[in-house]
Computed example of a mutant assay.
Amino acid sequence: MVSHRNVRSLVHEFMEDMSPSERKAARAVLAGYPSSALGTVAELAAVADVSPPTVIRFAARLGYSGWPELQRDVVKGLNDEGSPLSQYPHKTGAAHEDGRDVLTRSRCTFVDMIESTYESLPESEFRAMVQELCDRKKQIMLVGGRFSGFLAEYLAAHLRLLRPGISVVGHDELSRATAVADANRQTVLVVFDYRRYTVWAEHLAQTVQAQGATVCLMTDVWLSPIARTSSVVLPCPVESPSPFDSITAATAVVESLIAAVTEQLGEHGKRRVALAEGILRDA
């Protein structure tokens, strides 16, 4: 039996030790959390496409004696969390409540968030995404939402300097349709999808995955529904001193991906950067 802990944190902590089928159960829990963890064993097994005994083994992997004990911790965790709807009045009035100005609150929020991001980031998932991004035989497509699209463009700009085969999927129907038409087993789709999840991005991920593409997901700690069809999932907190979700932690992880890809591609990437720099200098 484990003491009361955040179930999501436990899942991330033990993800690397899980069997493939247990990992499917874990992602199904995270993708629909908390409701996914409050149903029956049979219901989760059906959603995750695993057997009921696998769900029981998944709970045991986290240190629980059974599914009911895990559910009790989920309920306790929910009682500890505030409703997102309460954030606007709470955060806009925070300066008056604790006497700190917005710069002080911002510094504390972002420093703590970056620290917690790297403490909880699943290293096995991070390494898996780096491997996908470094495979020069594969075509890498990136897509994001209204705000997270910035992260897709930013990562793509760096990857283009380091390797060929990089494209950004636009938000228009034609861009999405041609992305699906081009997708195959040599395609990797990197999706940035955060709270207020994008329905069309979920459909895009499902469609290209059905054609054999690998889906990698950058999302928040609640997990986009796209997690169900993703081979790699990197969650980040979105805490902010304002009522609006922040991409600060996600940007830090993107910078880490760029650093890891640069290191792994080594001289090949360096030669490509040198060639690109020469062309840009002479233009």
Rank of each mutant, 00 (worst) to 15 (best):
A260K: 09
D220Q: 08
S83I: 10
L38D: 05
V75F: 09
R8Q: 13
A31C: 04
Y64V: 03
T207Y: 02
P237M: 06
G93M: 07
L78P: 13
K270G: 07
V2Y: 07
N6R: 13
L70P: 03
A274I: 08
L265G: 06
G145Q: 06
L44T: 12
M129V: 12
P68W: 02
D182W: 13
A37F: 12
T187Y: 05
I56M: 10
F126Q: 03
L155N: 00
S167N: 07
V102R: 14
S35P: 03
L234H: 06
A95D: 09
H12Q: 12
P164R: 09
T229F: 01
Y154V: 01
S9Q: 10
Q211W: 02
H90T: 13
T92W: 08
S51K: 15
A227C: 08
V29Q: 03
C108G: 13
P164H: 08
T207E: 14
G144S: 05
M15Q: 06
R27Q: 11
I258A: 00
C236I: 02
T219D: 10
R228K: 14
E97P: 01
S65C: 05
A283C: 10
E16R: 13
I166E: 00
Y64A: 03
D112T: 13
S230T: 01
V41Q: 14
I56C: 07
S240M: 08
T54W: 01
D98C: 08
M141Q: 14
S246G: 04
A156F: 00
S230F: 03
A183E: 13
L162K: 02
P243R: 03
E132D: 10
T117G: 02
R176M: 15
H268A: 15
E123D: 07
A156V: 00
Y154A: 00
R195D: 15
G144P: 07
L62I: 12
F110R: 05
L44H: 04
I279H: 09
F110D: 01
A213D: 01
R185Y: 01
K91D: 00
D172H: 15
Q139E: 15
A213M: 02
A48G: 04
V41Y: 06
P243M: 06
I279K: 11
P20E: 12
R160S: 01
K91A: 01
T219I: 12
R281Q: 10
A31S: 15
S240C: 07
P89R: 06
C108Y: 10
P20G: 09
G82N: 08
Y194H: 12
K76Y: 12
T214L: 05
P68Q: 03
L78N: 11
S9C: 07
D80K: 15
R61C: 13
S256Y: 04
R146S: 04
V50A: 01
E22H: 04
F150N: 00
V169P: 05
Q87R: 15
V188R: 04
R160P: 00
A213G: 11
P225C: 12
H171L: 11
Q209A: 15
N184C: 13
V111S: 14
E173L: 14
S224Q: 08
G212H: 07
E153R: 04
T262S: 15
M141F: 12
T198E: 09
G66K: 00
L265A: 08
R127A: 14
T178I: 15
L159A: 05
R8A: 09
